[in-house]
Design a binder for these strands. Structure first.
Lengths: 213, 213
DNA sequence: ATTATCTATAGATCTATAGATAATGC
DNA sequence: ATTATCTATAGATCTATAGATAATGC
């Protein structure tokens, strides 16, 4: 099924999926660390260990490499977003959602960084393709849960998008800024104790933010 | 005093401070929207209404333009950070700090976006100058308040940097993502009602996160 | 005389293509 | 025969400099 899609997008000759995957992996690291415009094809080719023009044997353009990386990131997040425990208490559903995102990002920190880049770059949009749809499923699920909690009266009245801005960025920043807060402030976001500290804190914050009484 | 400093950094002929300020203002908009690498000198010159080489009459390099913009942003935030009401209850001190940052960013949204860019770009660091010191005062003040609250027993035990990641990013994201959450989800971050919604929410979140019992 | 702006251009860097050559699989 | 890789290079774009010319202030 997947290879059918790929052939549909790539009418050219078949290529080694292994090399393709290697290029994508190295490109993902670089795009996460330096952004689309800050990453050159030379850097990607170097990381892979080939010459720049060889990349065009596997992808039509730099943009296509980036888009492929990003599509995979979005789908990894939407996959973690889907399984909504529909009749759980809204606060539990919310925490499950946030925890799902966090797990994806801890397992693959490039996801966190590229999501952060997307937020940051949105206005001028290097990515003018799907300005409305990027992360839409993810935002929508959050909105849905807040509205459920407000519907049954257990949540405070607050604009869902305001609540989103209070709770969701913390996950991305917790993963991304582990090493960049300055001398003596580094931490390992995947360390069990630090992680529990964060998740307990996030739950208390969500509870204070949302739960009435 | 200020012009003395400027002369110290610019041994060349005197230049019109008005034009210089205009360049900085337009550059700030562009750097905020598109980043350092995403902004060309042509774009800046166009926005100002002059030709590209004329910029070099006022600044030695693109980097110097950026650094000047950023220095001003950092100082606007540290200025809002300094006045610590030292014997207020720690939660109040914390909220005052967060509110101070928010006010700066609402009055000048480019501050929020450039701070966000700094966080995002940190690892590869376009800005390799002061990796340890950028925003250091600001982070330190936050840390100090958390430790004060923990010292007097009113705050939960939580790593200050974890608390920072839960509370601080919300301010930046509240300002930056007002227009970019998708169809029908836009809001005006400076609108009094929306702002109260946010600040009340943030206080409830901080309270839940930090206050014991 | 000083300040401000321009055209022209050097020199780097970047994406992408052309076309040759090598390696691999039947 | 197909797949993979290379060198060479076109063509765009970008920062910065050189040096001429115009505008401004005493």
């Amino acid at each position: 099924m997947r290879s059918v899609r790929e052939n549909a997008r790539r009418p050219g000759p078949a290529v080694s999926p292994k090399m393709r995957a290697d290029i994508l992996e190295k490109a993902e690291q670089l795009f996460a660390a330096r952004g689309f415009e800050g990453t050159s094809l030379d850097q990607i080719a170097d990381a892979v260990g080939i010459r720049r023009p060889s990349l065009f044997h596997y992808f039509r353009s730099k943009r296509e490499i980036y888009d492929t990386v990003e599509a995979d990131i979005v789908s990894s997040l939407t996959a973690a977003t889907m399984p909504g425990s529909l009749n759980a208490p809204p606060l539990d559903a919310l925490m499950a959602l946030l925890q799902g995102w966090l797990e994806v990002m801890l397992a693959r920190p490039t996801v966190a960084r590229i999501v952060l880049r997307n937020t940051t770059d949105f206005p001028s949009r290097v990515l003018e393709r799907d300005p409305l749809q990027f992360m839409d499923v993810v935002v929508h699920r959050f909105e849905e849960i807040i509205q459920a909690g407000q519907g049954d009266g257990s949540f405070h009245t607050i604009r869902p998008m305001v609540a989103l801005n209070i709770l969701a960025p913390s996950i991305v920043h917790y993963v991304c800024s582990a090493d960049q807060l300055g001398e003596g402030r580094a931490y390992d976001p995947a360390d069990a104790i630090t992680l529990a500290d964060f998740m307990n804190g996030l739950r208390r914050a969500a509870q204070g933010l949302l739960i009435r009484e």
